[in-house]
Amino acid sequence: MFFHVKRLSKNLQIEPKYYGPSLAVVIKQRLQDEVENSCSERYGIVLKVFNIDVDNLEGKIMPTGMHPGGTAVFTVPYDAIVFKPFKGEVLNGVVKSSAAQGLFVQCGPLQVFIAKANLADDNNGLEWRGDNTPPCWMSRDERIVIGDKTHLRLRILGTRIQNDISQCSAVGTILDDYLGPID
């Protein structure tokens, strides 16, 4: 789920207009802008960078043909807090949208889709009630209601983590014991 990853590094290109007494501040800000809320197949979703070591940085000037004259590349070491979900992991989330095909649940920075087949079976008796206001999934005895803004506990069935955060997603289920709406 959440991990502290140590000793990562990122190459940052810094233009000459930023050279000067505030170079360390510029490098820290640029690193945070580029890395936080990004996604990596290896580490998952990067939530926060810290322990940015700018004290002993040495830049390497790039050839002028490829970049504006004087642009330097700095290799910046840092630590990060990441969120990487795994198959079988149980997460809590909030339903963002519900439809006859299933639910979209937001679990922190991760969006999880629960398909109809992983939402309703003969045991829990959930049915789609599109004619209700608002539309929702409801048990036959009307004791369980799952709609928008419902807090839900789910199990991850699979994940898709790619380099673009908008492409990071998962599929889940609530058909196991102790899963479903949280009161």
Score class of each variant (00 low, 15 high):
Val94Phe: 01
Glu41Cys: 07
Lys17Trp: 05
Ala120Tyr: 00
Gln13Phe: 14
Ala99Lys: 11
Val95Ser: 03
Val25Pro: 00
Ser22Tyr: 14
Trp137Asn: 00
Thr64Tyr: 00
Asn118Pro: 01
Gly108Arg: 08
Arg140Tyr: 09
Gln111His: 13
Asp121Ser: 08
Val46Ile: 15
Glu127Pro: 02
Ile165Asn: 02
Phe2Asp: 09
Ile27Val: 15
Ile182Gln: 01
Pro77Gly: 05
Gln13Lys: 15
Ala120Asn: 01
Pro109Leu: 04
Ser169Ala: 09
Ile81Leu: 15
Leu31Arg: 06
Gln111Ala: 13
Glu89Leu: 14
Phe113Pro: 06
Pro63Ala: 06
Glu34Val: 12
Ile45Phe: 09
Arg7Asp: 15
Asn123Val: 15
Pro134Glu: 03
Pro16Phe: 07
His4Arg: 08
Asn132Met: 11
Arg30Ser: 12
Leu175Glu: 03
Asn132Arg: 07
Leu175Asp: 09
Pro135Ile: 00
Pro68Cys: 01
Arg140Cys: 12
Thr71Ala: 07
Glu89Ser: 12
Ser98Arg: 00
Leu103His: 02
Gln101Ser: 14
Gly158Arg: 11
Gly59Asp: 10
Gln106His: 09
Ala170Gly: 09
Asp141Pro: 06
Leu157Phe: 06
Cys107Trp: 05
Gly65Thr: 14
Asp79Lys: 08
Ile14Asp: 01
Arg140Ala: 13
Gly172Ala: 08
Asn51Tyr: 06
Thr150Asn: 05
Ile52Ser: 06
